[in-house]
């Protein structure tokens, strides 16, 4: 810690740097900070609910549109008891996971192809970039025409959204591999497959995982969108259907469920990435720096 202690005789000052705490104290302080961070993280939503509760019961906001959290909780319990909520959650989760799987496989494949080959990139990048900007909901009616009123149409719509996210992040990751790392492979006369397996793919993985984290979020977003228009099960359907029946508390149950699903999926990807990529988690003096 730096502090100015006293005025030395000359027209100057004495700056003293000394220990702010022993290492043990510093470690205790770090742990305490971690606890405070967790409390804050949970505290913010709790505070929101409290404010909301007070506002709704005092009549500051219209409880028809903003039912107090206690009402929402009651609706949630009913939905859990009847088994409806799990049915909806399961339907939505399946769609998100199937959609993600389709999008990730095709998107990564496209990303690798475009990232590895100049010719493929020249041929397909303009086309894919143009399609990227088309809102996938705008093509959803077309998918319904092709696949009929089936789950496949919904899965494909989610998959298409994920595809573009994974394509862009994978391609960018491959193009960003440092020339120095490529040359290591070249100098050892590694063939294309070995170069890919030992250098390009591992180097690209951290950025691909960041793409995957964004992908699961947009997959949830897309899931809600398509379920609004075409489904008889799922969280999106629950929200939409509750709206038409003017059951605001059930609507909020759906909204909270979607938020939690997105949070869990996104964190799951983060944890997996930390597990799979120990090297991308670099410890530096006094703290962690992370590529992820």
């Amino acid at each position: 810690m730096t502090q100015i202690l006293q005025k030395p005789p000359a027209n100057g000052r004495l700056v003293r740097r000394e220990a702010s705490a022993t290492p043990e104290r510093a470690a205790v302080r770090r742990r305490r900070r971690r606890v405070i961070e967790i409390v804050l993280g949970f505290g913010a939503p709790v505070l929101l609910f409290v404010v909301w509760q007070v506002a709704a019961t005092s009549g500051a906001v219209n409880p028809l549109f903003f039912p107090p959290p206690t009402e929402v909780w009651k609706a949630a319990l009913e939905l859990v008891e009847s088994g409806e909520l799990f049915e909806h959650l399961w339907a939505s989760l399946t769609r998100v996971l199937i959609g993600c799987a389709m999008g990730v496989v095709t998107g990564v494949a496209a990303g690798i192809a475009l990232g590895a080959s100049r010719w493929v990139r020249a041929t397909l990048e303009p086309l894919l970039s143009a399609l990227y900007t088309v809102p996938k909901l705008a093509i959803f009616p077309l998918l319904l025409l092709i696949f009929g009123l089936t789950d496949t149409a919904l899965n494909v719509a989610i998959g298409m959204t994920v595809f573009f996210f994974m394509w862009v992040s994978t391609m960018a990751a491959f193009l960003a591999v440092s020339p120095g790392h490529r040359e290591v492979a070249q100098s050892f006369q590694a063939g294309p497959w070995l170069t890919f397996r030992h250098v390009l793919f591992p180097a690209a993985l951290p950025q691909m995982f960041i793409g995957l984290r964004m992908s699961v979020s947009v997959a949830v977003l897309m899931m809600v969108g398509v379920e609004f228009t075409q489904a008889n099960k799922g969280i999106g359907y629950l929200i939409w259907y509750s709206w038409t029946l003017f059951q605001a508390p059930r609507m909020y149950v759906g909204i909270v469920a979607v938020a939690l699903m997105g949070l869990l999926l996104s964190n799951a990807v983060k944890w997996v990435s930390l597990l799979v990529l120990p090297w991308a988690r670099v410890e530096i003096e006094g703290g962690d720096r992370n590529l992820l």
């Binding site: 810690m1 730096t2 030395p8 000359a10 027209n11 100057g12 000052r13 004495l14 700056v15 003293r16 740097r17 000394e18 220990a19 702010s20 705490a21 022993t22 290492p23 510093a26 003096e285 006094g286």
Partner: peptide, 19 residues
């Protein structure tokens, strides 16, 4: 530590500096 980027965990470091 001299630069103030890092505090020492023990001891003192004094700098006599001009304004």
């Amino acid at each position: 530590i001299v630069n103030g980027l890092l505090p020492p965990t023990a001891g003192t470091l004094d700098l006599w500096l001009d304004e």
